[in-house]
Simulated assay, not measured.
Amino acid sequence: MVPLGPGAVLLTARALDGVPALLEALHAVAEAAPFRRMTVPGGHTMSVAMTSCGAAGWITDRRGYRYSATDPDSGRPWPAMPEPFRDLARAAAAEAGFPDFQPDTCLINRYEPGARMGLHQDRDERDTDAPIVSVSLGLAATFLWGGLLRNDPARRLPLRHGDVVVWGGPSRLQFHGIAPLREGEHPLTGRCRYNLTFRRAL
């Protein structure tokens, strides 16, 4: 366990034992609700492809950022959250000091080489008392861990296959992001990195 700040930790290799079940569940979710690259309110198309599962999914378009109970591409509810997802999120949150975490959504990001995520806060959730649990699968990435203000300096932390980051409490609204993904090939995921981010959104 690597402390990142008050209420924030990196659990190195925490998800490794469950990777086969996680990837099987991930592919089942993506079959029901395919990955898509969304458009942000300013008109820019994100470099990261996304899908969701659970009671709601995070979406963005020219109208803004929000959670929706239905997939806008299909009009159907998002796939249910797989048990391996929920079990890992709850166990990792408990290890980080959040024993009552009950995630109701998981946003799944797919990064290919060159894709990035700029510094941002996760603040679209109604319950910001609950932590964020973020699971890395596949290619290694550089995690940008900033402060509570956008212009605060950001640390650069390596995230490897199986790593889990949990942040809540005083660090819940910390700015964070992912530097452009480097070219590579992972034996289980190919030329991509998957990121599972569990939240209490509703």
Results as ranks from 00 to 15, higher is better:
P82R: 02
A8Y: 13
P6G: 10
T12G: 11
L16H: 07
M1L: 05
V135G: 01
V135E: 04
Q102L: 13
Y194M: 07
L88K: 03
H176Q: 02
A15E: 02
L16M: 13
L16W: 14
C106Y: 00
R160C: 15
C106D: 08
D100E: 14
D100W: 05
P187N: 02
N151K: 08
A55R: 07
R200E: 12
Q102H: 12
P72R: 15
W58V: 05
L10K: 05
A93T: 02
R14Q: 15
E183G: 06
T189Y: 10
C192K: 02
A94V: 06
A141F: 00
M1D: 07
G75S: 11
L149Q: 15
A91T: 02
V40Y: 14
A179I: 09
H120T: 10
L119T: 00
G169H: 03
V19D: 12
V166T: 03
N195Y: 06
E95Y: 11
Q102K: 10
G75A: 05
D73C: 04
N109W: 03
A93Q: 00
A141S: 10
L157M: 09
L4S: 11
I178V: 15
G147Y: 04
E95L: 06
E125R: 07
G169A: 04
N151G: 05
G57I: 06
P113H: 12
G42A: 13
A15V: 04
T189E: 06
F175I: 07
D122W: 05
P84L: 03
A25C: 08
A56Q: 07
